[in-house]
């Protein structure tokens, strides 16, 4: 087929649609910046409740990211490297939090870890109160964020292939040694970018937290919940806090891009 008018192989109409799409994504951001009450910006974001919300958000998002790594890495390895009956089904279930509305996730968590939930009694006996605690926030965030890590890591594992692992095994390395000396270093960039994406998703979590954990300053009221509450009384503060969240998110996504730029290069070398 003969291509007419192309931009480095990309049809012009694709570029035009891409531009429209980019404007659609960027314009709301511009609108937020435009609405910020700049002279009041610092006082608005440094109020006691704002700072408490921001610190809580950062703390819980870091904790969730750690949980995502601890549980997500093994899940990704099992999904990428093993074969078992019903694997496709398991994969789609594991990725379910990605497509579920967070509120539904919150309801599901409530009926699992809530006081009258499946495991609620167990945790009560163990002396770990979950209802209305920061633990509940971390659980909600982990639930919605873990698919991001699994997806990114599983893809990288498949792309990297098993050649190096096979070589290491023939040289006498045990599976655990292979995992830590070969597999993980090979997919480290994807692991980092996956972890950063999980962190970003955890930071933005709203629905599941509100449904499952409640909302109390310094305990469960994270930045998104604080923004929603401020919208009721002080929209200026809500806008200012939104911008803070946007800034953190942009920074984090930028980090993720930098981390994920490496694996493509490596994958090319490997293949």
């Amino acid at each position: 087929m003969k291509r007419t008018a192309t931009l480095a192989g990309v049809p012009r109409w694709v570029a035009v649609i891409a531009l429209a799409g980019a404007i659609f994504i960027l314009l709301p951001l511009v609108a937020v910046i435009n609405r910020v009450d700049w002279p009041q910006f610092i006082p608005l974001i440094s109020s006691e409740s704002s700072v408490a919300a921001l610190l809580l958000s950062l703390r819980t998002a870091v904790a969730s990211t750690v949980l995502c790594i601890v549980f997500g890495v093994p899940i990704a390895i099992v999904l990428a490297r093993t074969t078992f009956a019903g694997q496709r089904f398991v994969r789609s279930l594991v990725l379910l939090p990605l497509v579920l509305p967070p509120v539904v996730g919150g309801i599901a968590l409530l009926y699992t870890f809530g006081r009258r939930g499946l495991l609620g009694q167990t945790f009560d006996v163990l002396g770990i109160p979950i209802a209305f605690s920061t633990t509940a926030v971390v659980l909600a965030q982990t639930f919605v964020a873990i698919p991001f890590l699994i997806l990114s890591l599983e893809g990288a594992l498949r792309t990297a292939g098993t050649r190096y692992e096979a070589v290491a095994a023939t040289l006498g390395a045990r599976p655990t040694t292979v995992l830590f000396r070969v597999t993980i270093p090979l997919v480290l960039p994807a692991l980092i970018s996956g972890a950063i994406l999980s962190f970003a998703r955890a930071l933005g979590e709203f629905g599941a937290t509100l449904t499952f954990a409640g909302s109390l300053q310094g305990v469960t009221r994270t930045l998104p919940l604080e923004i929603y509450l401020r919208l009721e009384t002080n929209p200026d503060a809500a806008v200012a806090l939104s911008l803070v969240l946007v800034a953190v998110a942009v920074f984090v996504v930028g980090l993720a891009y930098r981390a994920s730029a490496v694996p493509t290069a490596r994958a090319r070398v490997a293949s």
Binding site: G114, A131, L210, T211, G214
Partner: peptide, 21 residues
């Protein structure tokens, strides 16, 4: 000294309905 200050009355109701509160 509430354990949660909800953003809407429906939030309070659901916390009671589910026995969380």
């Amino acid at each position: 000294t509430p354990v949660s200050e909800e953003t809407a009355v429906t939030g309070v109701l659901s916390k009671v309905q589910t026995g969380e509160a």
